[in-house]
Each structure stands twice: as structure tokens, then as C-alpha cells.
């Protein structure tokens, strides 16, 4: 087995996370392309699979992924042949968002971005849990058990 070293490293990292008490994952998704959305959704759903609490805060271009139109456009970042390869391996962004939601990932929309883009809650897909500002996000993310990543 050549994967023993990687396995050892991963379990050390997880052990470390346990000691530090990292039990929540807070992702900020600031980009609207599927190349950013897939890794975000994979991390968030995997965190749920590992029993962690998972949140995604969609902001700026990331908010496009919370509209039906923006989701369709998100795949344009990939050339057609790559779109096919992704479709063979992963669900669509729309289906993946739905799965994430079913798995218990919390979906937060950014309030100032909605103002900027002239969006209302009626324009957003129904997976959105709430519309929050930076202070509320920081209040969540400042928890000592939180691991935060900006994408």
C-alpha cells in the first residue's frame, strides 16, 4: 500500500482538529463559477459526512449561485469537453446544492450583495436559510471550534 503515509497524515490532521475542537466549517464563497462551487460543495458535504457542522456564506459573485440563472451560467467557466467529464462524475450544481442542503449544510446569503445586485429573497433559490451581514458571519466564524476558509 503506497497510501499508508497519506492515510497517516490525514488521521494526524483529524486528531489535531479534534484536540483543537474544530467542529464547524465556515466557508465563504465569493466566486460564481462552477470551478469554485464544486470544491466548496465537496468540502461542505464531506464535513457533514464527518459529523461536522457546515456553513456556506455566499457573497459577491458567489451570490449568482443562489439564482437559477446564475447556476446555469456557472458551468461556462469550463470548456465543453470538461463539462462532459464533470457531468460524468458529479451532480449538476443545482442537484449538488440540493444534496448539500439535504445533508444539513447551512446556506447563508449576503445581505449587502443583494442590495448591490438588486436581488430580493424572491429571486433566490429556496435552499437559502437566511440573509445575513458580515457581522453575523463573523460572530459565527469567531467561535473557537470553527474552521473558516475563503474561496
Amino acid at each position: 500500500m503506497t497510501t499508508g503515509v497519506a492515510a497517516g497524515r490525514a488521521s494526524e490532521t483529524i486528531e489535531h482538529a479534534k484536540q483543537e475542537g474544530k467542529k464547524s466549517l465556515f466557508l465563504v464563497l465569493s466566486k460564481g463559477g462552477a470551478d469554485m462551487a464544486y470544491p466548496t460543495l465537496i468540502l461542505a458535504t464531506t464535513a457533514r459526512a464527518l459529523g461536522m457542522d457546515a456553513h456556506i456564506y455566499f457573497t459577491f459573485w458567489g451570490m449568482q449561485l443562489l439564482t437559477s440563472e446564475g447556476r446555469k451560467k456557472s458551468m461556462d467557466v469550463f470548456p465543453p469537453e470538461m463539462q462532459k467529464a464533470i457531468a460524468a462524475k458529479f451532480p449538476t450544481i443545482e442537484a449538488f446544492m440540493h444534496q448539500a442542503k439535504e445533508a444539513g449544510v447551512h446556506i447563508h446569503a449576503c445581505s449587502p450583495t443583494m442590495d448591490m445586485f438588486g436581488l430580493t429573497k424572491a429571486n433566490l433559490v429556496n435552499e437559502v436559510d437566511d440573509v445575513i451581514g458580515a457581522s453575523t458571519y463573523l460572530e459565527f466564524a469567531a467561535r473557537p471550534d470553527a474552521l473558516t476558509l475563503f474561496i
Binding site: 497510501t3 492515510a7 490525514a10 488521521s11 483529524i14 464527518l50 459529523g51 461536522m52
Partner: peptide
């Protein structure tokens, strides 16, 4: 998935479900 062996070790550690076999 070549990353699966380390992922399953991590999954088992984190969730407490014992990993009884891990082979390629």
C-alpha cells in the same frame, strides 16, 4: 478514487465507525 484510503481512515476516526478492511 486514489484518495479514498486516507479519506476512509479519516471518516472512521471522525465518526467512530470502525474501518474493518482497507485494501487495494
Amino acid at each position: 478514487d486514489p484518495a479514498a484510503p486516507s479519506d476512509f481512515v479519516a471518516f472512521s476516526k471522525r465518526t467512530g465507525h470502525p474501518l474493518r478492511e482497507n485494501a487495494e
